[in-house]
Amino acid sequence: MFLERYHSIQDNKVLISARQGSLFAKEVAGDFNPIHNPDERRFCVPGDLLFALLVAHFGLSRKMTFHFRSLLGDSVPLTFREDDDGMIRVYDDRDKVYIEVEREGESTRDQSIIEHLIRSYVAESGKNFPHTLKPLMESQGVMFNPDRPMIMYQSMNLSLTTLDAPEPELELGQATLVPDGKRGNVTLDYRLMSRGKEAGLVSKKLVVSGLRDYDPNTMDAVVEQFYRLKEKAWD
């Protein structure tokens, strides 16, 4: 599967190097957040890559809820397992949990269906900034710290009416940002479309940290840097 490029297996553990995580962010998600650069001191693996690996390994179910518990750094040995309570969790060697998943209903392991869904979902995630979050922050009069932009997954809910959804695309329905002190709680609701018909719903919750008053000039500079990094990545 296409995910082989973005992780490795060593001693029956999954490892994601900083380079692999960065490649996934840029090549699959179109995400150029500096926190996914391999030489970034605060580097973390994209949450979308953990989501993709879990679905590829355990299959796609009609209903799935992903809870993102901790940020994952460079080359941490990981164990993916289904526990006695039915939850799927990703652990490191110290039993720290990075993501856990609830699932129910019919499932499929068809790798073609799974890959198409992963690519559609992750490509839409890459549009979070600046396409979706910039106007949201502007409308609320807040923005993240431009020197340390931090946008983190909290959870994602997937509810499918069918597992046979060719050419899936996510269509943004509603987006909200609720400031709460120095953090902003973001909810993004999508319809999963397949050849013009609704095939399910997707809801994501994100946290934007380090909120401060919105400054249009500063935000414009952040957006310009984003596109410079994007152009540089494809040079």
Results as ranks from 00 to 15, higher is better:
Leu15Thr: 09
Gly184Thr: 04
Ile16Lys: 07
Pro46Thr: 11
Arg191Gln: 11
Thr187Ile: 13
Phe226Met: 09
Val207Asn: 02
Ala175Asn: 02
Asp235Tyr: 05
Asp235Gln: 14
Gln10Gly: 07
Asp93Gln: 15
Asn217Trp: 01
Lys205Ser: 09
Asn37Gly: 08
Phe80Glu: 08
Tyr190Cys: 02
Ser22Glu: 04
Arg109Met: 10
Pro166Gln: 04
Leu54Gln: 07
Lys230Thr: 03
Lys205Pro: 00
Lys197Cys: 02
Asp213Arg: 15
Ala52Phe: 01
Asp147Leu: 15
Arg183Gly: 00
Phe2Arg: 12
Thr218Met: 10
Glu138Asp: 03
Pro166Trp: 05
Ser159Phe: 09
Ala165Tyr: 10
Ala233Pro: 01
Ile151Lys: 08
Met137Leu: 15
Ser155Asn: 11
Ser22Val: 08
His67Phe: 13
Gly73Thr: 04
Val186Pro: 04
Asp147Gly: 14
Glu167Ala: 14
Asp180Tyr: 02
Met143Ile: 09
Gly200Cys: 09
Ser75Lys: 12
Glu198Thr: 13
Pro146Thr: 14
Ser75Thr: 14
Val55Asp: 02
Leu160Lys: 13
Lys204Tyr: 02
His7Val: 03
Asp110Ser: 01
Leu158Lys: 06
Asn12Tyr: 12
Ser120Ala: 15
Tyr214Trp: 08
Leu117Gln: 06
Ser22Gln: 07
Leu229Arg: 15
Val122Cys: 06
Val97Met: 10
Ile9Tyr: 12
Lys232Arg: 14
Gly210Trp: 06
Ala52Asp: 03
Phe32Trp: 09
Ser194Glu: 06
Ala18Glu: 07
Val207Asp: 01
Leu211Ala: 08
Ser203His: 06
Val202Lys: 03
Arg195Gly: 01
Lys232Ala: 15
Arg183Trp: 00
Val55Ser: 00
Tyr6Gln: 07
Leu170Ser: 00
His57Tyr: 07
Val76Tyr: 07
Pro168Trp: 03
Arg89Asp: 08
Asp147Tyr: 08
Val208Ile: 14
Val76Asn: 11
Glu82Phe: 00
Ile16Gly: 07
Lys197Phe: 03
His36Lys: 12
Arg19Ile: 13
Glu104Asn: 14
Val186Tyr: 03
Glu171Tyr: 00
Pro135Met: 02
Asp164Pro: 00
Leu3Thr: 10
Lys204Glu: 12
Ser112Thr: 10
